[in-house]
Amino acid sequence: MTGPFTTEAVLAYGYAAGLLVAAAGLDRLARHVARRSERHRTGGFTYRPEHDAWVCPADQLLWPVGQDRHHRLYRARPSVCNACPRKPDCTPSRHGREIVRALRPWPHSEAGRFHRGLALVLVVLAATLTLIEAVRHPAWPDLALAAAALAATAVTGWWLTGHLRATPAGFPGPFPEPEEKSANRDRYTTVWRSE
């Protein structure tokens, strides 16, 4: 006995609670992965919201040059980049370093979905374990623990399901051919020139 509860009940509901904590941890991991993707594409660059521009490690500015539904494109002046000693580590392009801000870049979006999916599996497992234990030993003080565990599971499940819904796989479909997409700004083939 542990206090008024049987040891088995404490262990079972405790493990279920542990699973909920692990699920919350996985959810955080998903968020971390998304943030990391941003950091990788913009490593060493700082965003200046007051100018809507990025500052590169060599203290040069990247200005917005284009936008579509999901992305915003920033580019530095080619003359500056081509003369920069750090260019080999920065960009292969002769047209100036560019940064694309994507709202939900794949596969980070789908990796996030993977982690959140697994987090939900743990929540389902916690619910299963709780119910099994409650059916096995339907004694009164233990059932209070079961109710608490179930309530926690329901809250975590609701919360994480919301997160999963808000995490689309985000795998992009094929891009339209250049001639077909005159309606959108073609950020892939047009070259921003300063001169």
Binding site: W106, H108, P172, F175, P178, Y188
Partner: peptide
């Protein structure tokens, strides 16, 4: 992941 992510630059 970074590598795979840069397929965004691809038209295909």
């Amino acid at each position: 992941q970074l590598g795979a992510r840069q397929h965004m630059e691809s038209r295909t």
